[in-house]
Nucleic acid binder design. Structure first.
Lengths: 350, 350
DNA sequence: GTGAAAGCGCTAACAA
DNA sequence: TTGTTAGCGCTTTCAC
């Protein structure tokens, strides 16, 4: 590699060989008018010939914006975020924007650095999954005029635009579904992390139980110790959920259904149940969250709440685009997308 | 949002308020010597006070390099690539480099645009998973002196550095393992895509069979129709593999073992076998590829070939760093990392 | 329709 | 130790 640096051609090079001014070449290539058709053709031909590629740095410097969106994600190995990355990159690119990705690993320290990095890079806008409740990192971005939309987890204090899943509704639907299928006693298995998504799901669970007149005794909410900080490059691990589930199975009265915070937890639960000789769904129903690609193929197939990753990513990019173009935005400041329940075998009693 | 643009402070602002030259401020902040300790302190304090953030665009423009690595990935939703992204971003950042992510969606057209985008952005180096065998897109990058390392799939014609999995060895180990466990007749289930990784795995399979003196009759290699082009934002789907597996199960003589090209295919196979009333591993052994996070928790747990994502990502970044710093690189041009077989229940006959 | 000049914010010579 | 000058490659006035 390092091919003896065949230096990149610049506008000046083209101008020189064509005996034109840099300015003319610039305007010819950028499609502006006020230029002779013939000149334009000559410039284009020469640019093509030497393989001219504009220098974004220079362009950004003078324009003040880099035609780049920043994306701050906690963990790309979480399938939900992976799909978000994919959607956002594709949509951003289709509008001419590149994507600068920063991984925050659920650490507020990384988050600070990420925000600073995006600031340095003069991103035209940024899409952020905040780590937790800390607002400091992202406040700066907004205060220097970088349009910023939060996704998945809101930071209400900032007053930024937000697009996320209606987790309360998700929790409600999952729980109601279990109740409809005959569950009276339900346990929730959630990661032990102080973030709004989880709180909302639990709130939805409580609402469904209350509406059905069912009690929510102590121990109904079980927490799976988080390992995100140690294993930020990995998705959730079923292992911890498995262990928590085993603890649950030592109880004298077992629940009829378990609503898991994500499909990996459901997977850990499946094993614990199997080892315990319990059948899903006849002995216990299981509902997951996320509709991960494996879930439809588990045995039994997992009923789960599908999260609107694509929709969230698309809206986030569109919001940025609208804000940048100055279009008045009709959408609400906070936008919650309803997740859909995917009914499968794990709640289908025969 | 768009907080009435509190303009970012520049070196000049600081210089003005402190009655210094821009240059002095620059050197004070960048830690160069030849500057009075007191001056430096004053500059730092002022920078801190106004929340100075350097402008990367300007810096890159004069330096000629953006302290950014480009990463071209086919599909972030593939767990292997997701982990690669995570590893690469983290390691790059720890050395001060940002990550510009481009998603190529297994499309050569996207790939061309991605390459051009990285070129425009003056990335300091790039890490690329090539889509297929087309070399054109990435040749440019090298020819203008951007260090480029290919990962996962090589393009031998380019002569670039390459770090990937030793898929031949992976295929060999998976197959040998099945043979050791008593399999005589083995089928391989691979995606129908003309890429080297797949070819190599199949080659390893053949070698293992040959060494054991086992025949490889027609129909031993079954192809799962690819859907990557339609569903580039999704990981592999078990569905297609399931259908191919069902076709296989209509044969009069069934294989003793199936080696799947990835764990999702194995999952599709699990269902087909279950529906057919066949038990894993007693009726048929199954081996996957990738060691996806769900695989250890399937029933039975899936024996699979673990891919060295972290190692590949780390090495790729290190190669770039070494190349940029001009360090002579001791490593071979092409580096294959051995994958490890993770033995689990799906090949453990009782 | 085209060119000359200025400047985006920064760093790297070279002077003072 | 500090300031001056020049320039990275591009776009945007404003003359011609």
């Amino acid at each position: 590699m390092r091919m003896a640096g065949a230096r990149r051609h610049t506008l000046r090079d083209i101008a020189a060989t064509l005996n034109l001014s840099v300015n003319t070449v610039s305007r010819a290539l950028s499609g502006k008018d006020g230029i002779g058709e013939e000149t334009r053709a000559r410039v284009r031909a020469e640019a093509e010939r030497v393989g001219y590629v504009p220098n974004s740095m220079a362009r950004s410097l003078v324009l003040g914006s880099a035609m780049t969106f920043g994306l701050a994600i906690t963990n790309p190995s979480n399938p939900f975020y992976a799909q978000l990355i994919s959607t956002i990159e594709t949509r951003a690119r289709s509008h001419g924007y590149s994507l600068l990705l920063t991984v925050t690993e659920e650490s507020e320290e990384h988050e600070m650095r990420a925000a600073e990095s995006l600031l340095r890079s003069s991103v035209s806008g940024s899409i952020v999954v905040p780590v937790q409740s800390g607002t400091e990192a992202w406040r700066r971005l907004g205060s220097v005029g970088v349009p910023t939309v939060l996704i998945n987890r809101d930071l209400p204090d900032l007053g930024y635009r937000f697009v996320g899943t209606d987790n309360e509704l998700g929790g409600y639907r999952a729980t109601s579904h279990a109740i409809e299928r005959g569950a009276r006693s339900i346990v929730v298995l959630e990661e032990d992390l102080p973030i709004t998504t989880i709180d909302h799901r639990i709130a939805g669970f409580r609402r469904a139980m209350a509406e059905a007149g069912l009690p929510v005794p102590r121990g109904s909410i079980m927490r799976v110790p988080t390992r995100r900080h140690e294993q930020a490059a990995l998705p959730w691990q079923p292992q911890q959920a498995y262990q928590v589930a085993r603890r649950m199975l030592r109880r004298t009265r077992l629940p009829d259904a378990v609503v898991a915070g994500n499909d990996y937890f459901a997977l850990g639960l499946y094993r614990a149940l199997e080892e315990h000789g319990l059948k899903v769904p006849d002995d216990m129903m299981v509902i997951g969250f996320g509709d991960h690609p494996f879930s439809a193929f588990l045995s039994p197939p997992l009923t789960t709440v599908r999260l609107p990753a694509e929709e969230i990513g698309t809206i986030a990019v569109d919001l940025l685009l609208e804000e940048i173009s100055g279009t008045p935005i009709a959408r609400p400041l906070k936008q919650l997308i309803a997740p859909t329940l995917v009914e499968r075998g794990s709640t289908q009693r025969s």
